[in-house]
Amino acid sequence: MVGLKTVQKALQAEVLAGAQYMDKEAEMACGADLMSDVLAFTKRKTLLLTGLANMQVVKTADVSDLSALVFVRGKEPTPEILAAAESKGLPVMMTKYTMFEACGRLYAIGLIGCPPKGAEERR
C-alpha cells in the first residue's frame, strides 16, 4: 500500500483533479490502455497508469473503484475528462515519464501489480 502523495513524488506528477482526495492510498497498480483488461484484472483501490486519455478511462475507474488515475508520457486529458473525474472524487495525475519508466519507479517504491485473476470474481 502506497500513499497517493508518495506516488506523486515518485513520478514528479502534476495533480490535475481531485486534489482533495490525495490522502488516499493505492493498494496495487495496473498499467493499461485496454479498459476491458482494467475491468477484468484490477481490484478495488488499484492505481491505474494509462496512456489513453478519454472519458472511458474515468468511467472504467468509477465502476472499478480505482484509487486514482495517472496519465503517462504527458498525455493531457481534456477539461471534460477532468470535470468528470472531479465529480466522481477521483484523483488524476499526469507524469512526463513513459509507461515503462513510471511503472518501474512505482514498483521500486513497493507498489505491487494486480494478480492475473480479478478479485471479486465468482468463477
Binding site: S36, A40, N54, Q56
Partner: peptide, 20 residues
C-alpha cells in the same frame, strides 16, 4: 473501438465471471 480501450474480447467472459 480498440482505440477507445474496448474490443479486447474480454467483456462477455468478464460479465460471466462477475455474476453469480
Amino acid at each position: 473501438v480498440r482505440a477507445m480501450g474496448f474490443g479486447a474480447g474480454m467483456g462477455l467472459p468478464n460479465m460471466m465471471k462477475c455474476s453469480d
